[in-house]
Simulated scan of single mutants.
Amino acid sequence: MTTENDRPIAAGVTVGHVHLKVADLERALGFYCGVLGFQLMQRYGTQAAFVSAGGYHHHIGLNTWESAHGSPPPRGSTGLYHLALLYPTRADLADALLRLQRGGVELDGAADHGVSEALYLRDPDGNGVELYWDRPRDEWPLDDAGQLAMYTRALDLRGLLAELRAED
């Protein structure tokens, strides 16, 4: 069935922000600002806060309006799988890995997808978080027909951290 709504979304559309329900606002701010390095832009008392990278009004909203002292949704339920934070360079992703290690945050996984390298983890409320950087488009893997050929391989975390030493 074809309708007038079958046309694609405008090419310039981007995801502006994500808003997460959290159980403890201070704990969430400790992770997003303290570990990942986001900047607190605005706060609404003890119930909500808005954090940003680079001074934007907010990339992530955190609130306890419906979730104060709550528990994460059980596995097997619908909801957010993960939010993905795109870092501009491989060195910036390496810095994020170092921040996670220093903050005692365990990774759920780390993968090289050919088009990108990614770190997977959970925030203190169990929300999935992906931290990644995209390789330049001209380095993306293609199959014999010239089609995108993404894959999943283990990411060399030591090699990623070496990116920081290479910048010195």
Rank of each mutant, 00 (worst) to 15 (best):
A94F: 07
G34F: 00
H57M: 06
D134K: 02
M41N: 12
Y81I: 09
G126H: 09
H69D: 15
A96I: 09
A111M: 09
R165T: 13
A11N: 00
G55C: 00
G55Q: 05
L119H: 03
L142V: 03
T78M: 04
T3F: 14
R137D: 10
Y151R: 10
W133M: 11
H113M: 12
H82I: 04
E106N: 13
Q147G: 00
F38G: 03
G16Q: 11
I9W: 05
C33K: 02
M150A: 02
F38Y: 04
Y151H: 15
A94K: 04
S52Q: 08
W140V: 01
R99H: 12
V18N: 03
H59N: 10
R153S: 04
A48H: 06
L40D: 03
L107T: 13
E66P: 00
Q39T: 15
A10P: 06
N5H: 13
S77F: 10
D156E: 01
E130Q: 15
M1V: 11
L100P: 08
H113I: 06
P124N: 09
L121T: 05
R137W: 07
G12R: 01
E130L: 11
G30I: 08
A48Q: 06
V15G: 05
D112G: 06
A91D: 12
M1S: 15
L142I: 01
S77Q: 10
F31S: 02
T14M: 12
D138F: 14
G159I: 02
P74R: 15
R43M: 06
G109S: 06
T3S: 11
V115R: 09
E139N: 11
V35C: 05
D138C: 04
T2M: 13
Y81M: 08
I9P: 00
G146P: 01
L97Q: 09
L40Q: 10
A11Y: 05
L85A: 05
V35A: 12
G79F: 03
S116A: 09
R158P: 07
V22W: 01
M1Y: 10
R27L: 10
T78A: 13
G103S: 14
A118D: 15
V35H: 00
H113E: 14
L20Q: 01
E139F: 06
L131Q: 08
E106C: 14
G79P: 15
G54C: 05
D125R: 06
S52I: 07
L29R: 11
S116L: 06
A110L: 04
Y132A: 04
A94C: 07
L157E: 01
L131K: 01
Y56I: 10
Q101N: 14
V105K: 08
Y56D: 14
L85H: 11
G12P: 01
Y151D: 01
L100C: 14
E167S: 09
L80M: 11
D108R: 13
R27C: 04
H19Y: 02
R165N: 12
Q39R: 14
R122F: 07
P74A: 11
R137P: 08
Q47L: 12
N5R: 13
E66V: 10
L25F: 02
A110I: 08
T152F: 00
D123S: 03
V51D: 03
V15M: 15
S116Q: 06
A49L: 10
